[in-house]
């Protein structure tokens, strides 16, 4: 595919933990990400959702090699070249890093309180020696202007700003190295609704204008639906479903997706919520269940689910799912909201 920017194949991230045994230390692994494959097209936003502990943050970070993946391949198509990130040496990686950036969740702890806003925004290009002297200032001002930050703010320190403004500073810092690919890890979760809307608009505008590619990780499903073209659902280190946003929300094919959709609180008091009750807790990623990982909580579980691992299949165009019964189950999607009557 020519318009693919990023391709991830069989990504695995295992964290070793040592269990003290009476006789020997046995090393076990937390399988945070266990065989995830997907691709992201140029200029697209891919949403990634899942419960806490499903491994979505680890996926985002290991793509950037902020966490070293245990196995798997991450390839970028930049300027007609295909670059395999996993084989890059540290030095090469550092040079390549300008192409990818991360926007963090917490605008309060992700900005260094002792640096001025200008220095914070300039840091990526200074660290990577992408610009010198006046050019640094010029690029900082350009990035700040894109994020609608008042240029007089550049001399101040982060404490003087509200949450929304801080998140703009974080976005300006991500944009300054002119990246192709940006990972937004819960980037709007800590913001108030009115500010959140503004930041989402900003991200969508920037994407339209400059063709950025986003991996948008969040647990708020309506936010993800709003900004993403396609959405992937993660459960216990694996993808269970990936489809264009509307297909995924309204015609989910995996029982776990159905449960997620049914749990979205409806802003209409007259619509009764009927959340699918998932029994039990999310199992431990140290010893994930055999067969289909969701079988311990799945309301439609059959014998085969306990023994055989379902395959990642494209059952409709661009609609991927891992479930033995994806074709036979009729699942309910998110409720179509009634026409809006807010004055």
């Amino acid at each position: 595919m020519s318009d693919t920017l990023l391709e991830i194949k069989d990504l695995k991230v295992y964290f070793p933990i040592r269990r003290k045994n009476l006789f020997s230390g046995v090393t076990q692994y937390v399988k945070a990400v266990d065989g995830v494959s997907f691709h992201i097209e140029k200029g697209e936003t891919l949403g990634l959702v899942g419960e806490s502990g499903s491994g979505k943050t680890t996926v985002g970070r290991s793509i950037l090699r902020a966490i070293e993946p245990t196995a798997g391949k991450v390839t970028f198509n930049v300027d007609g070249e295909t670059i395999d990130l996993s084989t890059l040496l540290d030095k090469e990686l550092r040079v390549f890093r300008k192409n990818m950036q991360l926007i963090f969740q917490d605008p309060y702890s992700s900005l260094n309180p002792r640096m001025t806003v200008r220095d914070i925004i300039a840091e990526p290009i200074v660290a990577q020696k992408l610009a010198k002297g006046d050019e640094v200032d010029e690029r900082v001002r350009e990035a700040a202007a894109l994020c609608k930050l008042n240029l007089e703010f550049l001399r101040r320190f982060p404490h003087a700003f509200s949450g929304g403004q801080r998140q703009r500073i974080g976005i300006a810092r991500a944009l300054v190295s002119r990246p192709q690919f940006i990972v937004c890890d819960e980037s709007v979760s800590a913001l108030d609704v009115s500010i959140q809307a503004e930041i989402l608009n900003l991200l969508m505008d920037l994407q339209k204008e400059f063709g950025f590619t986003f991996l948008f990780i969040a647990h708020d499903l309506s936010v993800v639906a709003h900004i993403s073209k396609r959405v992937a659902v993660m459960y216990l280190g694996q993808l269970v479903e990936l489809a264009p946003t509307e297909d995924l929300f309204y015609t989910p094919k995996h029982p776990y997706t159905e449960a997620l959709m049914s749990a979205i609180p409806e802003v209409d008091p007259n619509q009764e919520m009927n959340p699918v009750n998932l029994s039990g807790e999310i199992p431990s990623p140290i010893n994930p269940p055999s067969g289909c990982r969701f079988h311990t909580r799945c309301p439609y579980v059959q014998d085969i689910c306990k023994t055989d691992e379902p395959k990642w299949e494209e059952i409709e165009e661009k609609h991927f799912v891992t479930c033995h019964f994806a074709n036979t189950l009729t699942l309910k999607g998110a409720k179509m909201p009634p026409s809006v009557d807010a004055a």
């Binding site: 403004q165 108030d192 609704v193 009115s194 959140q196 639906a225 802003v267 909201p337 809006v340 807010a342």
Partner: peptide, 25 residues
């Protein structure tokens, strides 16, 4: 209240611009 309700991303406005409340608290 009206602005707050409009600022919430809803499933029927996928891909549209949200109506943000301008300015900060």
């Amino acid at each position: 209240t009206q602005a707050l309700l409009k600022a919430i991303p809803r499933l029927d406005t996928i891909g549209e611009r949200l109506t943000a409340i301008s300015g900060d608290i």
